[in-house]
Amino acid sequence: MKSAVIVFPGSNCDRDAQVALRQITGQEPAMVWHTESDLPKVDLVVLPGGFSYGDYLRCGAMASHSNVMKAVKDHAEQGGLLLGICNGFQILVESHLLPGAMLTNKKLKFISRNVHLKVENRDTPFSKSITGETIRIPIANHDGCYFADDATLDQLEQNGQVVFRYCDETGAVNDNANVNGSLRNIAGICNDRKNVLGMMPHPERAVDTYHGGTDGAELFKSMVEALA
């Protein structure tokens, strides 16, 4: 699987994504600066976590209009895989590549900890090889509260676009497990075509035993296997 990681001013998980992709795909991902107009020919584009453009105005708002995003949108339109992690998810909703919006966490705190996610749909290239009912990976965000109106939420559920929900260690989806107050405990959604995924938790920070867990690796392995 060939991949590219977009680097915005203020990205800070671009190297984590690079290391995870190198380790799992065995190929060196291209690092693409936000001013570029073209992307190399790749199977997967990653919008990494961080604070692109200092989170000015709204998280992801500036990045969604940066030069490289036209090529990123073309890549997704042509059916290429597009993964937005944390700030990358915020960029995807600001670009309208995914529905909804991100709000400040319910308790107004930056949250950095491991969370459990229930895998709600395995029929996507991002989740097909996940073995367990749940995965445990870290989140690190201040504006991770997913919002969409009821009609949009119902549509997401009907189409199987809700891929991950916050749950407890037993897999129960409840208010206590909903760390940032996201509507319907949503942690990650994909588009109708299932080639664009946005998620607040960080799979790239859980790919090596040194990370304290390797559940995140299963997402990247899913993509490799989906493309094989």
Binding site: L57, R58, E94, P99, F147, A148
Partner: peptide, 9 residues
């Protein structure tokens, strides 16, 4: 509509 506000919210 394009930048200053996010009309979803």
């Amino acid at each position: 509509e394009k930048l200053l506000a996010n009309t979803v919210i």
